[in-house]
Simulated scan of single mutants.
Amino acid sequence: MIDRAFASAAAAVAAGRIPGATLGIVWADGRRAIRTAGMAALVPEPEILTEDHWFDLASLTKVIATTRIILTLADQGRLDLDRPLTDAIPDLRQYDVASAAERRLTFRDCLAHRTFLPAVEPIYTYGGDPDRLRAFVLQREWRHGQMVYSDINFILLGIAIERLTGAPLSAWPLGDGLGYGPPSGPAVATEACTWRGRVMKGEVHDENCFALGGATGHAGLFGTVAGVLDFAAGLLDGSGVTSTMMAAIRTPLRDHRTCGWEKSFKGWHGGDVCSAETIGHTGFTGTGLWVDFDAGVAWTLLTNRVHPTRHRETGILELRRATGEAVSQL
Rank of each mutant, 00 (worst) to 15 (best):
6 F>Q: 04
29 D>P: 05
29 D>K: 04
45 E>R: 12
45 E>T: 13
48 I>L: 11
49 L>V: 00
56 D>F: 01
56 D>N: 04
57 L>V: 04
66 T>W: 01
69 I>F: 05
78 R>W: 02
80 D>T: 07
85 L>Q: 03
90 P>W: 09
91 D>I: 13
94 Q>A: 15
97 V>A: 13
101 A>C: 04
101 A>W: 15
104 R>P: 07
106 T>K: 04
112 A>N: 02
112 A>S: 14
113 H>N: 09
119 A>F: 11
120 V>Q: 14
127 G>A: 05
128 G>L: 01
131 D>F: 14
132 R>D: 11
146 Q>M: 13
147 M>F: 13
152 I>A: 08
153 N>C: 03
155 I>A: 10
167 A>T: 08
181 G>D: 07
183 P>T: 07
196 R>L: 12
200 M>I: 10
205 H>S: 10
215 A>T: 07
216 T>N: 08
219 A>N: 06
224 T>M: 02
228 V>N: 02
228 V>W: 08
228 V>T: 06
235 L>S: 06
236 L>A: 05
241 V>N: 13
254 R>G: 12
260 G>I: 07
266 K>A: 15
268 W>E: 15
280 G>C: 09
284 F>P: 07
285 T>L: 09
288 G>P: 10
288 G>D: 13
295 A>F: 10
306 V>W: 05
312 R>A: 08
313 E>C: 01
321 R>D: 04
